[in-house]
Amino acid sequence: MLAWIGSVQPLLLGAVLLWSAQAKLFSRYAAAHARRTALAPLLGEDRAVLAYRTLAGVEAVLGAALVLPGLVRLEAVAATALSTGFLGYLAYAKIKDPKASCGCLSAQPIPINGRSFGRAGLMLAGSVLALVSGAAWPGAFAAHPVAGVALLLAEFAAIVVFSPEFDEHWLMPLRRLYARLSHPLASPGAFDVPLESTVDQLHKSSAWRDLARSVTSDVREHWDEADWRVLVYSARYAGATASAVFAVPRLRYDPQAVRAAIVDENGGTLAAVESHAQPEYAV
């Protein structure tokens, strides 16, 4: 049982290594990404790029050798060494630079986490099984065609689950489907106009632009008055502290209707502004 299971592992190992190598070699972001992997602080930026490319080359050669039958024991030794080394690298990198990307199966920056270790552990287990078995995969498939295919599919599925690089192909669609079916952000019942949209409209008015440079604070307070929302800011007007009061249409979009007044600390109105169609700024 263990023998045939072990003998199909080179196919899994080879396919994963080939995938990993092509992602490292052919992504246009590969060099930049190499500098952001945990290799960079370990080796220095320039050597990290070289090490990244070299690793990709080793993965490509070993991956191709594993997929092709022959020299099983030797390849399994090499795969075990590579998997052990990679697991060690992950552990060391996690301790030395916890925020770094692993630089694993793609050029996407993905931090080292439990999934990285799960995948590296799976690769190591596969390598050890192949080493113990020592048999070539064509024989195993001839003896156990259905079980062999099922096992490989299950193992590939496990690699995919452990690989954030593949999330957008299965996890994201699942989450989108969940959102479409359950509408988790739907808000039942009445929902007031958010302050942000009122501020947005205010910023599109000429009244705001005429007064903005006098305004010294963010929104201090606001309240609704019939069809209007009133926003109060602090302002500096003619050298004195005052309030800049804006009235913005609450339920309709009409920035030209925005009005403003500057009110001093005693409640006297120093100035009032109506919005108007505005010319472009010089800048």
Binding site: H203, W208, R209, A212, R213, Y281, V283
Partner: peptide, 8 residues
């Protein structure tokens, strides 16, 4: 950098 909403 100039904030084009206010000129600041």
């Amino acid at each position: 950098t100039t904030n084009r909403c206010t000129g600041q």
